[in-house]
Design a protein around this nucleic acid. Structure first.
Lengths: 194, 194
DNA sequence: CGCGACGTTGATTTGCCTCAACGATTGTGG
DNA sequence: CCACAATCGTTGAGGCAAATCAACGTCGCG
């Protein structure tokens, strides 16, 4: 078995498995330790895997034609991370993933994930509900981008991730919110003055 | 049976069903004709249903505190539409849906959808893959908002939906792109001058 | 025809970016 | 454990893309 079965209680909280199922699932995951600054995925890598974050923090980011970075996802404990656009079709990554705080993650390939859907149908339901939540979160973020100012987006962000500033540099937050570090700095100043 | 079974070939293109399954599924859908300007969903309605668009065009939009409309989704033939944030949890709509070009749609409730997942497991896979595609599309839109100018977003939009300008008013496109009608007008002028 | 909805154009304003310089903080090797 | 460099955050001046405000064409429909 590749990993402790106890981690499965964490990953699949709320689902109960037989002992045989535990073993079956555990064999498909691989535990990975990452140091801050290490890279999990590079642009043009074929994306075979998704990753469950058990501790630490990672981010998915995109580099545009002018060389600017844009953070698509920040992942802390209990989040899944990958370049999902490429993962769903096992194609080339358009984004990179890097560790921004020492992390413990669990890797599973798409093939193994889909095998699980067949072997244990309730896992297809589990992942479907995960992605429904993810879909909802992305819609909220789009609405936020359409209707809010930079300052409003920042305060929403801080409310949504109350403790994330400890793990994440300001320029990661700025590139997630779609603003520059200078603008974020000015926004923070304004907010602390009140 | 509520609807012609032939429509199921359209909705579930690529899947084959037994005659019994056809009947089972068809009984869960309801056909609806909508006229331009009619409303499918209002803010604070409880969202029981999702809708398959067979013809015409609808949009989901959100009205912010200052009264401005923001278009989250434009749905043409072969798209599904709802306030999915509310649909997935059968809660109150934060957005409205209106018909912007005479439409024929097919309605199915969340309860019936989930019943189908159990009765015909390949439908859970079908809908999971649908939402994976939707998830991917939303991520692309977020990246587009983070990294592109209004003009670039507009040209991407036109490439992605080549014929949509026939069905949709400019101010719908503007509110989808997150710009004003005046800016869109100036962008269009610039582009036709080249 | 006449009215309302839609699109366009111009003048002005503004939120955020860019560029540049300078503090503050962190990490590292001597 | 300190010194120093690199990284990160802050501040200011100026510029630009897009918003706002206002007025005016144009189109479609009752």
């Amino acid at each position: 078995m590749n990993i402790e079965t106890s981690i499965l209680l964490e990953i699949f909280r709320g689902i109960s498995f037989t002992k045989e199922e535990h073993i079956l699932i555990a064999a498909k995951f691989e535990k990975i330790h990452l140091k801050k600054g290490e890279t999990l995925l590079l642009v043009n890598d074929i994306v075979y895997n998704q990753y469950y974050v058990s501790a630490g923090c990672l981010r998915t980011f995109f580099i545009d034609d002018s060389g600017k970075e844009h953070t698509l996802q920040l992942a802390i404990k209990d989040w899944w991370i990958s370049d999902y656009t490429a993962f769903f079709t096992t194609s080339k990554a358009e984004m990179a993933i890097e560790c921004i705080q020492d992390a413990i993650i669990y890797k599973i390939s798409r093939k193994e994930t889909e095998a699980l859907y067949i072997e244990i149908p309730q896992l297809e339901t589990f992942f479907r509900k995960k992605i429904e939540k993810g879909f909802t979160a992305l819609q909220k973020r789009i609405l936020s981008g359409l209707s809010q100012s930079a300052k409003e987006r920042y305060t929403s962000f801080v409310n949504q991730y109350p403790n994330i500033e400890q793990s994440v540099k300001n320029y990661h937050i700025a590139s997630y919110l779609g603003i520059t570090t200078e603008s974020l700095s000015r926004i923070r100043k304004e907010l602390t003055q009140n």
